[in-house]
Write a protein that binds this DNA or RNA. Structure first.
Length: 595
RNA sequence: GGUCUCGUAGCUCAGCUGGAUAGAGCAGCAGCCUUCUAAGCUGCGGGUCGAAGGUUCGAGUCCUUCCGGGAUCACCA
């Protein structure tokens, strides 16, 4: 990397020329702004405190010294306190030589021996996946891929919330209203059917409450005493006791849901190395809480409920076990964390969970520390922002929840329509065309969701937001397809460019900017891993595609008369295509050969 | 009320640990296909970076206060 080499040279210069020992991290380069000549810029202001000189004079001295010290510097210029360095073309060309014909551009820099477990998705079994889950799933999957590309072991896990009162509600409604309906009979996905049952329960429950209120009950009393909720609570108790009939129904309906989820996950292109179920972890959580109570880390209230007092850390008291001994969300999360650590002995446990749960994870980590779990320091909440619609948050009551399956269908359908309007894909056989439309629609969706900084709340407009032009997934795909088209033609006309025999040429501005971007990839990958941000990758591939398109626009490749320049341009094109393909794949986006 | 967050062009978003005159896309307008895929490229217009102070040679970026959104503080998950 240029920067490392130059840093080294600078440290030498400061030491020899000015008797100053500078810390390497004090030196930072930035890209030279396009209006000035140069590739990298060193800002000299920070050094003026140590070396009392006029900034321009110092900048010139450093520039001269760098030229003497490092052959890769071709020239320099100084504007105010900014030292702009022009890197020799040979440096970029040499870098290219070393990276030709690559399909993989990963690096093994970041914590090679570190094991990371990353949890994402975390669905409830009473509701189908929606837009919010899409962001979660894509983010988690992509961050895992990015971490893998930087080296280190990464395991993807899912935690299914498969127990609790909400599942009992769906079960009860199925018993009462479904008349034996199954996904096969109804012809719907299992998760959708169970979701419908949940809604039906809610309707019937509300009706009961209304009736009770009309008969003179107060609203809150009605909510507690309605027969349906009583039945659901009874069912939950039976579940906890292991009642075989309840368990059988529970297993059957959850099975339907999992089949449905699998379809959605597969379509989204995400996967897991392991799936945890809350029903398998909450007992361990309970046990840990009781151990904590014995150790005096927690305390018991008069009613028998167990709490953790976090007031001395600026937080509140947190309930860990109800008075009746049943567990809450926190209980099972303690168990899940322990189980996960035992399974993987991971250095880092990343939870991809919405920022509405910041408090929860803060508390979880503190509680685990109090339990003496040193690995709690490795817990990291990848807290992402909510997805909002133009009219605000999604609300199931108002029917504004955007269903994941439907959204994917719409995206692909839009891709088909757009392609047909543009007259694309006609020459393809129907099955290939369908695959292409699917590919494009999913790319549009994934890029749209991932290009935004994960931490930020993002807006999604179902009718207008998804575009196929400009800063979008299909734009990048299109760039790739165009390059591939050229390479096919080059191949057909017997041109060979897959050689490391690269002539020294003078780079033209657009050739150089594409090449420099390619060179900068490893920085981007590292940065994306450290900040857990696929958005950086998304922005990078867009930047690269745009830059390449500009180059492509007014520079002939196949028709370039100069043979060594033509060779270089073919190589540059090939490398760009490989890079786009590799980087996009970290976002779950596939690059088509044609479109 | 306590804690945490966010506020950049009409809209959606970039802006690496503070660096030069704050950038893209969409939308609008005007151009470019007898030449490698026009899902492309070029140009134009569009900003008090929520406001005011402060730190600094230098602030969209750091600190304080205020204004305006959001989240959270459940025997929900």
């Amino acid at each position: 990397m240029v920067e490392e080499i130059l840093k080294e040279a600078l440290l030498n210069i400061f030491y020899k020329g000015y008797q100053q020992e500078i810390k390497p991290e004090a030196i930072s380069f930035q890209q030279t702004r396009p209006e000035f000549e140069g590739d990298l810029t060193l800002v000299v202001f920070p050094f003026l405190k140590l070396i009392k000189k006029n900034p321009e004079v110092l900048a010139r001295e450093i520039g001269e010294a760098l030229i003497a010290e490092s052959p890769m510097i071709q020239s320099y210029n100084v504007i105010k306190g900014f030292l702009n360095l022009v890197i020799h073309d040979d440096y970029w060309l040499n870098w290219m030589k070393g990276n030709l014909n690559k399909q993989v551009f990963n690096q093994q820099i970041l914590n090679e021996n570190e094991t990371t477990v990353i949890e994402y998705s975390s669905p409830n079994t009473n509701k189908p996946l929606h837009l919010g889950h899409i962001r979660n799933n894509l983010l988690g999957w992509s961050v895992a891929e990015i971490l893998r590309a930087n080296g280190g072991k990464v395991f993807k896990v899912n935690l299914v919330n498969d127990r609790g009162i909400h599942i009992c509600k769906s079960m009860l409604a199925w018993q009462k209203f479904a008349e034996g309906k199954t996904p096969e009979i109804a012809g719907v996905k299992g998760d959708k059917l169970v979701g419908e049952m949940y809604v039906q329960f809610d309707k019937a429950y509300k009706a009961e409450q209304k009736l009770l209120v009309e008969q003179g009950s107060k609203q809150d009393e009605a909510a507690k005493s309605a027969p349906l909720i009583k039945e659901a609570q009874q069912m939950l108790r039976e579940w906890e006791e292991g009642d075989s009939q309840v368990r059988t129904l529970w297993e059957k309906m959850n099975g339907w849901v999992y089949e449905g989820f699998d379809v959605t996950y597969k379509r989204l292109g995400i996967d897991f190395d392991q799936i945890y179920y809350e029903s398998q972890t909450y007992l361990l959580g309970k046990q840990l809480v009781l151990e904590g109570l014995e150790k005096g880390v927690f305390f018991k209230k008069d009613d028998g409920s167990i709490w953790c007092d976090l007031t001395d850390e600026g937080l509140d008291e947190k309930l860990l076990l109800r008075a009746d001994g049943t567990s809450v969300y926190m209980t099972q999360d303690i168990g899940t964390a322990q189980l996960r650590y035992d399974d993987y002995k991971a250095d880092r446990l990343i939870y991809v969970v919405g920022n509405e749960q910041n408090y929860h994870f803060d508390v979880l980590q503190k509680i685990l520390r109090r339990l003496g779990k040193s690995w709690a320091d490795g817990i990291e909440h990848l807290s992402y922002g909510m997805v909002e619609l133009p009219e605000g948050k999604m609300k199931s009551r108002e029917g504004t929840v955007v269903d994941a399956d439907e959204l994917m269908d719409e995206m692909v359908e839009t891709a088909r329509k757009m392609s047909e309007e543009l007259g694309k894909g006609r020459e393809l056989p129907a099955s290939d065309a369908n695959q292409l439309f699917d590919n494009i629609g999913m790319a549009a969706l994934k890029y749209y969701m991932l290009r935004v900084d994960p931490k930020k709340t993002m807006q999604f407009n179902p009718t207008e937001s998804i575009d196929f032009n400009g800063n979008t997934g299909p734009f990048v795909q299109y760039t790739h397809a165009r390059i591939k088209s050229i390479l096919r033609k080059a191949e057909a006309s017997q041109l060979t460019w897959k050689t490391s025999d690269l002539q020294s040429i003078n780079l033209m501005p657009k050739e150089k900017s594409v090449l420099v971007l390619l060179h900068n990839w490893s920085d981007v990958l590292l940065q994306a891993a450290m900040s857990r941000s696929p958005a950086l990758i998304a922005n990078y591939i867009y930047e690269l595609a745009k830059e390449y398109n500009q180059f492509y626009q007014d520079n002939p490749i196949l028709k370039e008369a100069d043979v060594s320049r033509r060779l270089f341009r073919l190589q540059l094109s090939e490398l760009t295509a490989s890079m786009l393909s590799y980087a996009a794949q970290l976002l779950g986006i596939k690059m088509p050969e044609k479109m």
